[in-house]
């Protein structure tokens, strides 16, 4: 099967007065139709910048400097054509016709991502009208239907509500309804559950899984929460400091982690089976400062398997180690 989205060697840099921040520095991954890909990593690892690069939402002083973002675009007649999003003008018509229509975003802060002075109905209808040639009445009907679909009680009345009048969970539901407005083929969820409490979080995840199944969408799910990844993802991409450390199906990542970073990350999850009184292992050190990235493998200063003269001199590339997993580490060279 051909991937829906294929990211190759993506590099996104931010050119600041103080220096260049290499927020994304060579990222590769694929998303297949109907698949849920989880991108996981600590804050600052470049996961949000990666997906914003895919949508070409990076603003000055940031720029997508290198790499391919191959997307299987489907035109109105249903014909498919692969286009490289990285080559498009970020303000141009071509990318705008893809954003929202074929690739939709669920942002991390539903509160701040709705305009507080426009009703949610207005904003959802706008999403419909931007990409579909329908009348206002029809757009309204579609919007209400979408709200109904995401489990919004009284959708017709809620059309007139402002985002700050809704609870956190309902607000995120409204946001999901807006993202689904045009039946996207790829949904990007950027930590959609960080801003809401745990019980609502579970409901929202359930809802996302249901919707994914109904619409048969591909989903990229970004989070720093390994627990959420285990619940939702089919395939996992582990990122650290702008680079992909390891990729693989969710079971393999959790049960047979290969990269020292993935291993360390999994070890630092508290377990109810751990003997009482035992200290939770943590990853030594902290994420380096963005201006002073280590040369070579970005993880070597904190790595238990650090090989002096190897890890700090050249950068490992992401290579498949079996038919499912790929790792970028010199241990597997």
């Amino acid at each position: 099967m051909e991937p829906l989205l294929s990211v190759r060697g993506l590099k996104t840099y931010f050119y600041l007065d103080e220096g260049t921040v290499k927020a994304v520095d060579g990222v590769d991954f694929d998303v297949f139709p109907g698949q849920i890909v989880g991108i996981v990593g600590e804050s600052g690892c470049g996961k949000s910048v990666t997906i914003k690069s895919v949508l070409r939402l990076i603003q000055n002083p940031g720029r997508v400097v290198e790499g391919e973002i191959l997307f299987r675009h489907q035109d109105e007649d249903g014909r498919e054509k692969t286009i490289d999003l990285a080559q498009l003008d970020p303000h141009g018509k071509a990318i705008r016709s893809i954003r929202g229509a074929e690739i939709a975003l669920i942002p991390q802060e539903p509160m701040a991502s709705f305009s507080p002075v426009h009703t949610i109905g207005d904003q959802i209808m706008e999403a419909v009208l931007l990409h579909q040639d329908v009348s206002k009445e029809e757009a309204r009907r579609i919007s209400i239907e979408r709200l109904h679909e995401v489990g919004m009680p009284n959708p017709e009345q809620r059309m007139k509500a402002y985002s700050w009048e809704l609870s956190g969970g309902l607000r995120q539901r409204a946001m999901i309804a807006m993202s689904l407005a045009c039946n996207p083929r790829l949904l990007i969820a950027d930590e959609p559950t960080t801003a809401i409490d745990v019980t609502t979080q579970a409901q929202v995840l359930r809802l996302l899984l249901d919707l994914q199944e109904q619409h048969n969408m591909a989903v990229i799910f970004i989070t720093h929460d390994l627990g959420v990844i285990a619940q939702i993802a089919d395939f996992v991409v582990v990122m650290y400091l702008g680079r992909v450390m390891e990729t693989g199906p969710v079971e393999d990542i959790f049960f047979h982690p290969q990269h020292p970073y993935t291993k360390a990350l999994l070890e630092s999850i508290p377990s109810i089976y751990a003997p009482a009184g035992e200290r939770l292992p943590t990853i030594e050190g902290s994420i380096p400062h963005p201006f002073s990235r280590p040369s070579g493998c970005p993880f070597y200063p904190r790595c238990k398997a650090f090989m002096p003269g190897v890890c700090n001199t050249s950068t490992p590339q992401l290579k498949p180690i079996n038919d499912r997993q790929a790792v970028s580490c010199f241990l597997y060279d």
Partner: peptide, 19 residues
């Protein structure tokens, strides 16, 4: 405040201090 937009880059403000 542009750089602050990205959660992933919030480490930058610390970076400015360091500068």
């Amino acid at each position: 405040a542009q750089d602050e937009r990205f959660e992933d880059l919030t480490a930058l403000s610390a970076g400015n201090q360091a500068r």
